[in-house]
Amino acid sequence: MNKYFLHGLYGLLGVIMLSAIAFKIFQPIQVLPRMHLAPAFNLIDQDGKPLTSEALRGQFVIFTFAYSHCPAPCYGIFETLQDVQSRLDEAQLEGIPVTFVTISFDPQRDTPAVLNAYAQSIGADTQRWKFATTTNQTLLKTIIGSGFEVYYERKEDGNFAFDPTFVLVDGWGIVRAEYRYATEVSNADRILRHLGVLAEEVRNSKGTAKLAYEAAHLFLCYAP
């Protein structure tokens, strides 16, 4: 009897380990990590209207950080976003809205009027793509520097040294992906693929399917 019990126990542990290993290796479900909370903010957009983090809840938001005097092509940030903007159908979002927010770290020069003209000049659809900043420099540094963990610093010539970064935030205000210029492939293909992965998770965020997705988080089955 004792022998059978031990066999049963070994069998059980074996099955559990095998299923865990199989889940990890085959990754039937892939997710994006819930990295950290995105900072809350209350900015002024290119139309002079408030743009708040609260108003963006329930949407996927791609944040970028730049300034209108950035020498073109400004690390290709806008080309990548334009690419994403024109190919959004590929992500199969099925009605989940996506907004682009470019936060300027140069509020002295980037007034709403300047940002509006800049948006027009690069062909941004301002219904979807917002340009915003705040004249509260301390808070701006908190939001971009500490909140989004993006480095920027004004140089003596008035231009900025900065780390060109894309940050993908989900509808709950949680950062799900960061694409840093120096270390990551920050191309439209990857961003679109990740938007699709997020949308898939949102569609499966109830009942049994939710458990499977939480298991994918637990086993760190992250989409490349």
Partner: peptide, 11 residues
């Protein structure tokens, strides 16, 4: 303002 922003709290 700083604490609220960094904990994702808009007000």
């Amino acid at each position: 303002d700083k604490v609220a922003s960094l904990y994702g709290i808009f007000y």
